[in-house]
Nucleic acid binder design. Structure first.
Lengths: 325, 325
DNA sequence: TTGTATGCGTTATCAG
DNA sequence: CTGATAACGCATACAA
């Protein structure tokens, strides 16, 4: 490995001088500067960023904790977060928690030990307390984990409202609401709050279906919707709190030759970009993923730079009408 | 930040001793060991991994270069690679090249500067030469980039053969082959070689469609298949070299009320796990992604440890018959 | 304009 | 069993 020392010797100067041309610091004669630059080229020298980080107490690494990169929505987030982080000179350490609390905690101390400059939590399963003693800039997505920890979210209540009212406007008389595990304190639960709010206001019949399933759990969804169709043949509208739930529902419906949207109308949440390759295109609530990711990166970097930030960051959502309503 | 020095002072020993209990080296009286451990707890001390890495010349970081994590197939790879790397004590630095040659090269030097221990290339757009001077363990996926650089692949020729013969067995008389850009020297191109091999052997009419499109490029695919259906109304079989191509084709077909598989049979390549939420389930060639990722991690770690490895690593594939044939 | 000395947090070597 | 000390590669304060 070639170090600053090698460059210095070969250029006939000291490491200080090399360091100076490297960092554009102080005054250097253009002659030595050129010489040094030339030697660096010759030796294909690149400064050791670990050593720099150690000295500067700054790694320029952001830890990104996600339950699962292979989840299409989180994969998109990872993509955009990497994109914006890279643009601003930061690297991403990828942490898949696999929704395993132990692994998430292990990663937390790992990130601390590795001196990342900050942490973006795309989601989490851990209790709030774990993060408090971390003394590290954090920003979360769709989750409040502490009084002073900033978060980025979108208007989940409005999303739920838009979806439900849309179904009612479409003439639905009995609406099923498919949601995930409501026990975790996610901001996304407001979608469900809004559903009940609207449905009661309009005195619409409704039914709640809890589906705490992994996105890849085909069998789980199959079983869930088998039961559903057996019990609720009169439902004519469905609001699902994720794109996956809507898609699995539609699939189950199509297998039963149920016409969508003629007989049942369906609204989902969060398109996955790749869904464009499948039919039908699902009416759903969109949150501005890219801007949210840009802000996540911005908020973490601002914290790193000790700049003031806003704690609550809520983006507007909108309903995109497509083929299922 | 609490350092080894703080622990030493508080425990009334020197840093050497603390380092010893930290690394279980040498003989220490159980009394001082306990004392030191206790102080470490009190201070919530975690050794600075940057400093350790600097000294040991080993970061335990693997650079993972992918064109795009949000691609479902690559997202799965990222997931498994993180999983196996984590199990073996390595961290993943996520590099999205976005199929941008400049960014890929920038990342290459960045990884070098940051002293990653090795690089896994999930794919790439760069010329071979760029990697040669890197002096860093590398392993690639589905691509040969140098005489001595190991790679992991699956039997692409066999995959192409299986797919094509399956269509023929299903009675197809004119088969379209949808492939990507063949100019890049990817091992995946063997799928196409096999297609032509089989189709000629059986004297089957065929047509080649090149689709060098981004996986999210709905419009591009729409246009492509508009042209296709205008020109080739007599095709009754399709072999696509990716799941996405097959799915977009099927979608275009369904929009035209073409019965699949009755009128046209379709075989794809590489399921995405999330496709289980959509209909129809596409007949396709499966490669053992998880094992391939495990091996990628294994090969990079073996190189890091200077252990001998096998350069060519080819996994078998199989055809999974589902609803489109 | 350039060089010397010191420290970042850690581990290893060598004494004691 | 424990402690000075040097070194990892780099950057800064202070001299010259």
């Amino acid at each position: 490995m070639t170090t600053i020392k090698d460059v210095a010797e070969r250029a006939g100067v000291t490491v200080t001088t090399v360091s100076r041309v490297l960092n554009n610091r102080g005054k250097i004669s253009s002659k030595t500067r050129e010489k040094v630059n030339q030697v660096m080229k010759e030796l294909d020298y690149h400064p050791n960023e670990m050593a720099r980080s150690l000295f500067r107490k700054k790694s320029n690494i952001i830890g990104l904790i996600l339950p699962m990169v292979s989840h299409p929505f989180l994969g998109e987030m990872a993509y955009f977060i990497e994109y914006y982080a890279y643009m601003r000179g930061y690297k991403i350490l990828l942490c898949n928690s696999q929704m395993d609390r132990d692994k998430e905690n292990e990663y937390l101390v790992l990130l601390k030990k590795n001196k990342v400059d900050g942490i973006i939590m795309g989601s989490h399963t851990t209790e709030v307390d774990e993060y408090i003693g971390l003394e590290l800039p954090i920003v979360t997505f769709d989750r409040v984990i502490g009084e002073n920890i900033p978060f980025v979210t979108s208007d989940n209540f409005e999303g739920g409202r838009l979806a439900t009212e849309h179904l009612i406007e479409c003439g639905c008389k009995k609406i099923a609401h498919i949601t995930g595990n409501l026990s975790r304190d996610l901001l996304a639960n407001k979608r469900t709050e809004a559903f009940f709010d609207v449905v009661r206001k309009h005195s619409i019949e409704h039914v709640l279906i809890q589906a705490d399933l992994n996105i890849f759990d085909l069998d789980g969804y199959t079983k869930l919707f088998n039961d559903f169709f057996a019990d609720h043949s009169d439902v004519d509208g469905v609001f699902a709190t994720s794109y996956a739930k809507a898609a699995y529902f539609i699939k189950a419906g199509l297998e039963r030759k149920i016409k969508i949207p003629e007989r049942i109308k369906v609204v989902g949440y969060d398109d996955y970009r790749i869904s464009s390759m499948f039919l039908p295109h699902i009416t759903s609530i969109r949150q501005p993923v890219e801007q949210m990711c840009e802000l996540l990166v911005d908020l973490i970097i601002s914290q790193i730079n000790k700049e003031p930030i806003q704690r609550e960051n809520c983006f507007p959502v909108n309903l995109v009408k497509r083929q299922t309503t």
